[in-house]
């Protein structure tokens, strides 16, 4: 049975490319593109791995991460955070809030696939 990855990202063409890439790699992919209700969607879908962008419309990825780590079924889900800002303080903040990995845009296809395999233990 394929592993389930949820991609929370607001750039439609990134969503399409990464979804295609991961699907061809054998993942079951679902996506969501706004921050308002992302925490509820994440809990409802309860993925094996979560890919979470930092800058989202409505609510930041940091706030969403803090929310899902505080309670519910996704407290321990591996989270790969994506950001266009590679600043150390952002990385430290992500780690403090419970991110498993942190990746700076632009990333390569090989990087994201390799990282997701590591996070899912597959």
């Amino acid at each position: 049975m394929s592993k389930h990855v949820l991609l929370v990202e607001d750039e439609p063409n990134i969503i399409e490319a990464v979804s295609f890439l991961l699907s061809r790699d054998g993942w079951s992919v679902s996506t969501h593109s706004n921050g308002h209700d992302a925490a509820d969607v994440i809990r409802a879908k309860n993925p094996d791995v979560l890919v979470l962008d930092v800058m989202l419309p409505g609510r930041s990825g940091f706030d969403i991460l803090e929310d899902i780590r505080s309670e519910g079924v996704c407290r321990d889900v591996p989270v790969l955070m994506l950001t266009a800002r590679g600043q150390t303080k952002d990385r430290e903040r992500a780690e403090r809030l419970g991110a498993t990995r942190f990746m700076t845009k632009p990333f390569s296809n090989a990087e994201i696939i390799e990282t997701l395999h590591e996070l899912s233990g597959s």
């Binding site: 490319a17 295609f20 890439l21 845009k105 632009p106 390569s108 296809n109």
Partner: peptide
């Protein structure tokens, strides 16, 4: 701009 670059890089690699 970084969002566009990321999408182009990923899509062109595919």
């Amino acid at each position: 701009m970084l969002g566009a670059v990321t999408a182009i890089r990923s899509t062109s690699s595919i």
